[in-house]
Amino acid sequence: MDEDLRERLRTAAASHRPDRARMLARIERGMAQGPPARPARAPRSPMPWLRIAGATVAVCGVLTAGAFAVTSTGREEPSGGQRVAAEPAPPAPATPPPVRGGELPAGKGPLWSDGSLDPNSSDYWAQSEVVVKTTEPLTGLTVELRIAMNGGVNTTGSWRSLPEGDFEATAREEDGYLVYRWTLKPGRGVPTGTHTFAGQYNHAEGARDTGQDDYTARARTADGTTSVGGGFSETR
């Protein structure tokens, strides 16, 4: 094999992208020119095809290793890939705020009640309130508020949160008390919910003791009758 052919083979083996068909074609063209004159002592290169194939395999191995390295590096963070993020833990369920003042202190069956002094009461005037809460519709209801006649008490009016036309309301002195009374008219009803009845009155200047004041609420439902009552602990 002459030097020209060897040079061509070395060039083909060093190529980054070997073209096997082109290399074979060059070898065939070189061999078609006939064997060149060789020096008498120049040893014959054994098995030239094995050397050509070995060079080709070496080049292909280098290129394959390079491609594998590039692919491995790119696989670490693929373009356009998606990251799966852990979903946050669901928020803890909200705890209902405590009811200020708690449930109505007096209760029986579907009826509950509470008596209190309006915070806007003064040293000359006061408003006592009875709150009635029912969990069933009422077909009859009478609310009675009794204010002890101590300290020059006299009425200045009354009101209720239910419709005025559904009740007969009175205010009179009875046995040392100013008595406010609201009575549901026949054929009328009280819906489920919380309802307020209030009596207003003047009194002598200064703090007034409410320890003797009280109230009652008597109701009728589809299942029968029930009543609740209580007093007023505040002093005004």
Rank of each mutant, 00 (worst) to 15 (best):
E3K: 08
D4N: 12
R6T: 09
R6A: 07
R8Q: 12
T11N: 08
T11H: 05
A12G: 06
A14L: 04
H16G: 12
H16S: 14
R17N: 07
R20W: 01
A21E: 05
R22D: 13
A25I: 02
A25S: 05
I27S: 03
E28S: 06
A32G: 02
P36N: 13
A37W: 08
R38H: 07
R38C: 03
R41Y: 13
A42H: 12
R44H: 03
S45I: 09
S45E: 12
M47H: 07
W49Q: 14
R51V: 13
A53K: 07
T56C: 00
V57K: 10
G61Q: 14
A65N: 02
A65L: 08
G66N: 01
A67S: 10
A69I: 04
V70Y: 08
T71D: 12
G74L: 14
E76D: 08
E76W: 07
E77C: 01
E77T: 03
S79G: 09
S79D: 15
Q82F: 09
V84F: 12
V84P: 04
A86H: 04
P88H: 10
T95W: 03
P96K: 05
P96I: 12
P97H: 10
P98S: 15
V99E: 15
R100E: 14
G101S: 06
G102P: 07
L104F: 13
G107E: 09
G107S: 14
G109K: 09
G109T: 11
W112D: 08
S113N: 06
D114H: 12
G115L: 00
G115V: 07
W125Q: 00
A126C: 09
A126P: 03
E129I: 03
V131E: 10
K133V: 04
T135G: 14
T135R: 14
G140W: 07
T142L: 07
T142M: 14
V143C: 06
E144S: 15
A148Y: 14
A148M: 13
A148E: 14
G152R: 13
V153K: 05
V153R: 10
N154Q: 15
T156I: 07
G157L: 02
G157R: 02
S158W: 09
S161E: 08
L162E: 04
L162I: 03
P163Y: 12
P163C: 08
P163M: 08
G165R: 13
G165C: 05
E168Y: 02
A169E: 12
E173F: 00
D175G: 04
L178R: 01
L178K: 01
Y180E: 02
Y180P: 00
T183A: 11
K185G: 11
R188F: 12
R188H: 15
R188Y: 10
G189P: 01
G193N: 13
G193C: 15
T194S: 15
H195F: 04
T196C: 06
T196W: 04
F197V: 03
A198E: 00
A198R: 01
N202I: 06
H203E: 00
E205R: 02
E205C: 03
A207C: 04
A207Y: 02
A207I: 05
T210K: 02
D213V: 05
A217H: 03
R218Y: 13
A222I: 04
A222H: 06
A222S: 15
D223M: 05
T225K: 10
T226L: 13
T226R: 05
G230K: 11
E234V: 02
E234H: 05
T235G: 09
